[in-house]
């Protein structure tokens, strides 16, 4: 059961994400953005939060063109699992693995606080440890978390049950209160809130633990 966490210049949640995977039982390797291949036998790739490449041009735009991201795209296209959190979500949309884009928060402010998320579907390896309708507390910390997709894309996400999480009280203007979405094959999750920051008693909440625990279980049995 192997996880790889990608490290970009400017990543700052890479170690938190690695610890969350480790606590769930994964062997974790850190992968540098200039590497062109993922380690052999990786089950899931974590794309962490932070400010890759200083958020230059657009959040995640430069990271999406890095050598390692080509490998991540290939991994996803082969049916591999991936989790992108915060900047990682922005990067996954910039690569085209996930639809839509993240805009500046509607209120223009950087927001850092724990928010209530509604679990919209339990039908994924990421959300299998929850029940649809559960409300969990997970921290957000972003300036550009305002999810946008055209009406057709949002309708498709809803029809295909691909909205994983939504905000109970929308903090950033995201269309349809969307906080996290799944790929078409349900094996890639991108979300702005940080489950890895809610996975230890010391964090003040452990509502994110169920995600990593479910991942460990499902990836092993897959």
């Amino acid at each position: 059961m192997k996880a790889a966490v990608v490290v970009f210049p400017g990543s700052n949640c890479d170690r938190d994400l690695a610890v969350a995977f480790e606590q769930a039982g994964f062997d974790v390797s850190m992968v540098w953005h200039k590497d062109s291949a993922l380690p052999e036998g990786v089950d899931i790739v974590g794309v962490p939060g932070g400010f890759s490449y200083g958020d230059y041009l657009r959040c995640g735009a430069i990271a999406a063109q890095s050598p390692i991201c080509k490998a991540v795209v290939e991994h996803a296209h082969r049916g591999g699992y991936a989790l992108g959190v915060c900047n990682g979500f922005q990067i996954l949309t910039e690569t085209g693995i996930l639809p839509g884009a993240l805009l500046r928060n509607a209120g223009l402010k950087y927001i850092c606080r724990t928010v209530d998320l509604k679990v919209e579907t339990a039908n994924s390896v990421f959300t299998d440890g929850y029940s649809a309708g559960d409300v969990i507390g997970v921290p957000i910390a972003h300036h550009d978390g305002n999810y946008f997709a055209d009406a057709e894309t949002v309708a498709a996400l809803k029809d295909q049950d691909r909205v994983a999480f939504s905000y109970v009280d929308n903090p950033n203007g995201s269309v349809a209160d969307i906080a996290g979405i799944l790929s078409e094959n349900r094996r890639v999750l991108g979300m702005m809130p940080h489950p890895e920051r809610a996975s230890d008693e010391g964090h003040g909440g452990t509502d994110g633990t169920a995600m990593f625990r479910a991942l460990a279980g499902m990836v092993t049995s897959a």
């Binding site: 657009r58 735009a61 884009a101 805009l103």
Partner: peptide, 9 residues
Amino acid sequence: EKLLANTVI
């Protein structure tokens, strides 16, 4: 198309 603009937005 590839980098300078994100044509989604």
